Amino acid sequence: MHNESPKQLIAETKQPIPAKPGQLARYDYEYSRKGVCNIFIATEPLMGKRIVRVTSTRKKQDWARFLEEIARKYRYAEKITLVMDNLNTHKPASLYETFKPKKAKTLLDRFEFIHTPKHGSWLNMAEIELRVLSNQCLNRRIDTITEVRRQVSAWEKERNNKEAVINWRFTTEDARIKLKRLYPSV
């Protein structure tokens, strides 16, 4: 499973007031926007493993290099299946635009791509992992990509060490009801 998400880099404009006994920390509503970074995530849901990378852009080349990293991590796998959305960067051409043809073809042969239906990204477990990452790690103002990388790396290591898995409760019967319009009529 694979997904990606932007993260705004936001700095405080005034010094926050730290928490005291009986009083929460206080932050000013005003902030300074410092740009955006991109978070790529790939999950191996049954094993409780994930790979997360933070990049300064979300270009075809960034995605292709992330695939290269996944392929390197799973170098002994014959085929790597990626479930992902239909984003414009998620195309085989991205590999050819980034790498020499021989390398692009070698990488492409390692992957099987399964695209979620339009408006069905919630079917992608990597989307759930991104939500967990956001809630546990990135739900505050962070002003530099370096700090985002540091936080994400620590989160990734902790989740992988715990082998944290997603309790997926969407059954085949649920799919037949919820996705009825996608099934052929007989």
Results as ranks from 00 to 15, higher is better:
residue 24 L to Y: 14
residue 53 R to D: 07
residue 72 R to K: 13
residue 166 I to N: 05
residue 55 T to M: 01
residue 173 E to A: 14
residue 3 N to D: 15
residue 55 T to C: 06
residue 33 R to E: 08
residue 87 L to H: 14
residue 41 I to M: 12
residue 50 R to C: 12
residue 44 E to T: 12
residue 103 K to P: 05
residue 47 M to W: 15
residue 76 Y to S: 08
residue 103 K to D: 02
residue 6 P to M: 02
residue 57 T to C: 08
residue 60 K to H: 12
residue 68 E to H: 14
residue 119 H to A: 02
residue 86 N to G: 14
residue 14 K to S: 13
residue 92 P to S: 00
residue 134 S to L: 03
residue 148 V to M: 00
residue 24 L to I: 02
residue 89 T to I: 13
residue 85 D to V: 04
residue 79 K to C: 00
residue 177 I to D: 08
residue 141 R to K: 13
residue 131 R to H: 15
residue 125 M to D: 04
residue 141 R to E: 03
residue 102 K to A: 06
residue 144 T to F: 08
residue 125 M to N: 11
residue 134 S to Q: 15
residue 167 N to T: 05
residue 115 H to T: 04
residue 177 I to M: 07
residue 83 V to G: 06
residue 169 R to Y: 11
residue 127 E to M: 01
residue 66 F to I: 02
residue 56 S to W: 08
residue 173 E to S: 12
residue 25 A to H: 10
residue 127 E to H: 09
residue 86 N to S: 08
residue 158 E to Q: 13
residue 105 K to I: 00
residue 121 S to D: 04
residue 148 V to H: 05
residue 92 P to T: 00
residue 172 T to Y: 15
residue 42 A to E: 07
residue 21 P to T: 08
residue 173 E to P: 10
residue 59 K to W: 07
residue 86 N to M: 05
residue 89 T to Q: 07
residue 47 M to L: 12
residue 4 E to F: 06
residue 88 N to I: 00
residue 60 K to N: 10
residue 71 A to D: 04
residue 168 W to Y: 15
residue 86 N to E: 07
residue 43 T to C: 09
residue 33 R to S: 11
residue 12 E to P: 02
residue 89 T to F: 07
residue 67 L to T: 04
residue 39 I to A: 01
residue 33 R to V: 04
residue 25 A to K: 05
residue 117 P to N: 01
residue 145 I to W: 10
residue 6 P to F: 07
residue 69 E to C: 03
residue 57 T to K: 15
residue 98 T to L: 02
residue 62 D to M: 02
residue 23 Q to V: 11
residue 5 S to E: 11
residue 109 D to N: 13
residue 122 W to F: 12
residue 91 K to M: 03
residue 51 I to L: 13
residue 139 N to Q: 03
residue 109 D to H: 06
residue 62 D to W: 10
residue 151 Q to N: 12
residue 177 I to S: 12
residue 51 I to T: 08
residue 156 E to W: 10
residue 3 N to C: 04
residue 73 K to F: 09
residue 41 I to C: 10
residue 146 T to M: 10
residue 155 W to F: 12
residue 81 T to P: 10
residue 67 L to A: 00
residue 82 L to Y: 11
residue 20 K to S: 10
residue 125 M to K: 14
residue 46 L to G: 11
residue 10 I to P: 09
residue 13 T to Q: 10
residue 68 E to L: 03
residue 91 K to C: 04
residue 8 Q to K: 13
residue 114 I to Q: 12
residue 44 E to V: 11
residue 31 Y to K: 08
residue 80 I to A: 01
residue 163 E to R: 15
residue 107 L to S: 00
residue 83 V to D: 03
residue 20 K to T: 14
residue 80 I to C: 01
residue 116 T to K: 05
residue 54 V to R: 08
residue 44 E to A: 02
residue 22 G to H: 03
residue 160 N to I: 01
residue 73 K to G: 03
residue 127 E to W: 09
residue 3 N to A: 06
residue 158 E to G: 01
residue 184 P to S: 06
residue 31 Y to R: 08
residue 86 N to D: 01
